[in-house]
Simulated assay, not measured.
Amino acid sequence: MRLIQIEGGSGPAEALKIAEQADPTPGPGEVVIQVRAAGINRPDLLQRRGGYPPPPGASPILGLEVAGEIAALGEGVSQWRRGDRVCALLGGGGYAEQAVVDARHVLPIPEGLSFVQAAALPETVSTVFANVFEAGGLKAGQTLLIHGATSGIGVTAIQMAKAAGAAVIATSRGADKAKAAQALGADVSLDARSDDLAAAIAEAGGVDVLLDMVGRDYAELNLKALKPGGRWVVIASLSGSVVEIDLMRIMLKRLVLTGSTLRSRSADEKARLTAAVKATVWPWVASGAVRPPVQAVYPLDKAAEAHGALEAGDHIGKFVLTP
């Protein structure tokens, strides 16, 4: 099979090269997926730079989510058949023509979704569900604040929160992105370059849950934005991860500050999460309520161009590779 290999170098053009290796063989409890599309995520950029190594036992190949057809079944797999149209959450291996994955981490593609659309779902939907709904405890009638609202995670979080009956305040950089977030369902959409974020969030009444992908630069804003009993969930720190916080303010407002990564979770935990996503989120996907936009599609051998586009930060939604 063909795949993308990391060969070193600081930029995507130097680091990402097409290579070939033997097709994978599924072990017990695993399946092989013939990859028709693979989602691109910011952790892929970090791994390419050497900052986000795969967990023990995971494929060193980039790629955390794919869509395609079941090509082979490992011993003990009974819930899937060859030819089934599926998407899956991976620990690695998506930037290739075939990927091997724990059968419990696989989801059926809902009727009417293309492989490209389906490939944009598993990593982002699982991340949002685990952090906004499980760790953050977002409920109908509450308000979610999303920083970086037009990223792949952000657009998914907007749609999932609205599907759950919550209100959404979105921040993004630039008027066009603010309009896009509003079009996706955000009740209040703010331009981080021109709007007074603190004043606008206060005028909206504050927030119950905050999904933070910015980190250091928004720490003070976040403390002000959260209502008493609010939950601040960190999943990235693009402006820096070292922050000085007055713990008394956390105590007085009874805030919860938490965060997580998805890739390092155990296979059993990912299986539990996949089942929860199927039960709660998949009906929203099937109905069309959750359908994250895809900014652009690149062939596998243009992975370096796709990484460059994601790093530029001008996108709205996801980038997808098609082997």
Results as ranks from 00 to 15, higher is better:
residue 278 K to F: 10
residue 20 E to P: 08
residue 302 K to Y: 04
residue 8 G to P: 09
residue 181 A to E: 09
residue 290 V to G: 07
residue 156 T to K: 05
residue 130 A to L: 14
residue 227 K to S: 12
residue 306 A to F: 03
residue 149 A to D: 00
residue 190 L to G: 00
residue 188 V to K: 03
residue 218 Y to A: 05
residue 110 P to K: 01
residue 275 A to L: 09
residue 4 I to W: 04
residue 150 T to L: 05
residue 35 V to I: 09
residue 105 H to I: 08
residue 247 L to V: 13
residue 84 D to N: 13
residue 123 E to I: 02
residue 50 G to T: 01
residue 315 H to T: 11
residue 226 L to G: 03
residue 77 V to H: 06
residue 123 E to N: 08
residue 117 Q to H: 01
residue 250 I to E: 02
residue 30 E to I: 01
residue 303 A to V: 03
residue 37 A to K: 00
residue 105 H to P: 07
residue 91 G to T: 10
residue 322 T to V: 15
residue 88 A to C: 00
residue 77 V to T: 09
residue 163 A to K: 02
residue 188 V to A: 07
residue 116 V to F: 13
residue 139 K to R: 15
residue 135 A to V: 14
residue 101 V to R: 12
residue 183 A to W: 10
residue 180 A to Q: 11
residue 46 L to A: 12
residue 56 P to N: 00
residue 126 S to M: 15
residue 19 A to G: 11
residue 82 R to H: 13
residue 197 L to R: 02
residue 105 H to T: 11
residue 242 V to G: 12
residue 129 F to I: 06
residue 127 T to L: 09
residue 119 A to W: 12
residue 221 L to K: 00
residue 290 V to T: 05
residue 195 D to G: 04
residue 158 I to M: 05
residue 57 G to K: 00
residue 69 E to W: 12
residue 113 L to D: 08
residue 192 A to M: 06
residue 160 M to V: 06
residue 68 G to C: 07
residue 79 Q to W: 06
residue 131 N to A: 09
residue 145 L to P: 06
residue 253 K to T: 03
residue 289 A to D: 02
residue 171 T to Y: 01
residue 80 W to I: 13
residue 229 G to W: 07
residue 225 A to P: 09
residue 287 S to L: 05
residue 299 P to V: 03
residue 37 A to C: 07
residue 59 S to A: 11
residue 133 F to W: 08
residue 90 L to I: 09
residue 70 I to C: 02
residue 293 P to S: 03
residue 156 T to H: 05
residue 133 F to D: 08
residue 292 P to M: 04
residue 268 D to Y: 12
residue 141 G to A: 04
residue 134 E to L: 14
residue 275 A to S: 14
residue 261 T to G: 14
residue 22 A to I: 03
residue 222 N to C: 13
residue 101 V to Y: 04
residue 166 A to W: 01
residue 162 K to A: 05
residue 113 L to G: 10
residue 9 G to K: 01
residue 187 D to P: 00
residue 268 D to K: 12
residue 61 I to C: 04
residue 178 A to D: 07
residue 184 L to Y: 00
residue 5 Q to S: 14
residue 3 L to W: 12
residue 41 N to F: 10
residue 313 G to Q: 08
residue 267 A to K: 12
residue 218 Y to G: 04
residue 272 R to G: 13
residue 283 P to G: 07
residue 163 A to Y: 10
residue 266 S to F: 09
residue 78 S to W: 10
residue 52 Y to D: 12
residue 244 E to V: 13
residue 192 A to N: 10
residue 74 G to R: 02
residue 203 E to N: 12
residue 37 A to S: 08
residue 322 T to I: 13
residue 2 R to S: 10
residue 244 E to C: 04
residue 268 D to W: 11
residue 276 A to W: 08
residue 301 D to F: 00
residue 142 Q to E: 15
residue 164 A to R: 09
residue 266 S to T: 15
residue 126 S to D: 07
